[in-house]
């Protein structure tokens, strides 16, 4: 892969994670435990969807540098199959109960903010400005996730047990966020991307401070799932895409 192909792939990884998580959060619409939470989840999902659009739009422009044409954001989001998606496995995990949704969001948000902060200083001006904009929004996401982890962890016996089970269950999907493959390394050296492995330490520090305030135990398992960045996904992503993409698949080019 040349530099532009690597950048395209890198942008898809970011956009796909945002989009898939936005779709998961959208599944909560009308099912939130209270009205305020229904609205909050939708707002976070909307932010992520908006960010995904900015990344896809740029990816499409980068694609024109090495392909016959660049795909538009709708084509990238709605006409690729699961094996072409580059999102983290974490974000495709099903919503589960509310603690599961909060644990997934918390793991992602803490990482997302650290990641965007690094990207906001990217040598690629466009990457930098999208990241800087997204970073302002993600601040609210991470504050809310952390508040909920504490509220449920340091809550009743039942909420504590569910929150602990959720952070334990999803733990094996967190390793992927800090994996650095050839694309990550090439773009880090070029001053465009960020060193994924360098985020592991601050992520863990912030995590453990919130988990301890929540009276929860930081999971210790060393075995981690991997594959999202290479397009190797769990079957859950296929179900999610089937629902998200069916309209464009059934009626190609349909518009509102």
């Amino acid at each position: 892969m040349n530099r532009d192909e690597q950048l395209f792939d890198y942008l898809l990884r970011i956009a796909d994670s945002d989009l898939v998580l936005a779709q998961r959060l959208g599944e909560w619409v009308g099912h939130g435990p209270v009205l305020e939470e229904d609205i909050a989840l939708t707002n976070v999902g909307l932010d992520l969807l908006g960010q995904a659009r900015l990344w896809y739009a740029y990816a499409g422009e980068v694609e024109t540098r090495f392909a016959a044409r660049g795909r538009c954001e709708d084509e990238l989001a709605l006409l690729r199959d699961a094996s072409e998606f580059r999102n983290l496995l974490l974000v495709e995990r099903p919503n589960g109960n509310y603690a599961d949704t909060i644990a997934r969001q918390f793991y992602f948000d803490v990482w997302h903010r650290l990641f965007l902060f690094q990207l906001s200083r990217s040598g690629d001006a466009r990457v930098g400005e999208i990241a800087a904009k997204a970073l302002k929004e993600v601040r609210y996401h991470v504050e809310r996730s952390a508040d909920w982890v504490i509220r449920l962890g340091d809550g009743t016996d039942e909420s504590h047990a569910k929150m602990q089970a959720a952070v334990d269950e999803l733990w094996m999907y967190t390793g992927e966020m800090f994996e650095s493959d050839a694309t990550d390394q090439a773009l880090t050296i070029a001053g465009i991307g960020c060193d994924a492995s360098a985020l592991a330490h601050p992520w863990r520090e912030q995590l453990s401070s919130i988990l301890s305030e929540a009276t929860l135990t930081l999971p210790t398992g060393a075995w981690m799932q991997s594959g999202g960045k290479r397009g190797v996904h769990t079957e859950q992503l296929g179900h999610l895409l089937a629902e998200m993409q069916w309209l464009q698949r059934a009626y190609p080019g349909a518009q509102w």
């Binding site: 902060f117 906001s120 800087a132 970073l135 302002k136 504050e143 508040d147 601050p202 912030q206 919130i210």
Partner: peptide
């Protein structure tokens, strides 16, 4: 100025 300090999580 939230872009400066990402070491803190909460308000």
């Amino acid at each position: 100025q939230q872009t400066v300090d990402v070491s803190r999580l909460r308000r």
